[in-house]
C-alpha cells in the first residue's frame, strides 16, 4: 500500500525530476537514473524512464540525439530545450505550491517531517 502510494506520487512528478536532471547539461538514460537514485527517488527502471523521456521529447521539452561512440555502442543523449526550461520553472513552482498546501493540511492532522 505504502509502495503503491509512493509510486503514484512519483508518477506525478517524475517528468519534472527528469527535466531537472538535464538542467546542468545533456545526459543519457543510465546517467539520469543514477542521478534520480542519488537524489533519493529510488531506482527507476528503463520501463518507467523511457516512456517519460519519449513524452518529453514529443512535447519538444527535450531534444535527443543518438551519438555513436568511438568505442562501444552509441547512446541517445537528451538536452533540455528553452521550452522545457520554462515548463520546468512553471510546473516546478506549481508543484511546490501544491506541496505547501498538502504539508499544511497534513501538519494539522498530526503528520511530522
Amino acid at each position: 500500500m505504502a509502495t503503491d502510494r509512493r509510486a503514484s506520487w512519483l508518477k506525478g512528478v517524475l517528468d519534472l525530476a527528469v527535466l531537472t536532471c538535464l538542467t546542468e547539461g545533456e545526459s543519457y538514460g543510465y546517467e539520469i537514473t543514477k542521478k534520480l537514485a542519488e537524489s533519493g527517488l529510488g531506482e527507476i527502471r528503463g520501463g518507467t524512464l523511457y516512456p517519460v523521456l519519449n513524452r518529453l521529447e514529443e512535447a519538444a521539452l527535450v531534444e535527443a540525439e543518438f551519438r555513436a561512440a568511438e568505442r562501444g555502442p552509441g547512446r541517445r543523449y537528451y538536452r533540455l530545450t528553452e521550452q522545457g526550461r520554462a515548463f520546468l520553472h512553471e510546473q516546478g513552482t506549481a508543484w511546490l505550491r501544491f506541496h505547501q498546501v498538502v504539508k499544511s493540511v497534513l501538519t494539522k492532522g498530526g503528520a511530522e517531517e
Binding site: G29, Y30, E31, R45, G46, G47, Y50, P51, L53, N54, E57, E58, A64, F66, G72, P73, G74, R75, R76
Partner: peptide, 28 residues
Amino acid sequence: IAPDGWEPCGHWMYLAYHKRPLAASTGP
C-alpha cells in the same frame, strides 16, 4: 553493460538475459 541501458531479466544455467526498451537507442 548497465551504462548502455541493459537491465537483467533472468538467467538459466550459464545463459544470462538482459533487456532494455528499444527507445533507449531510437526514442519515440
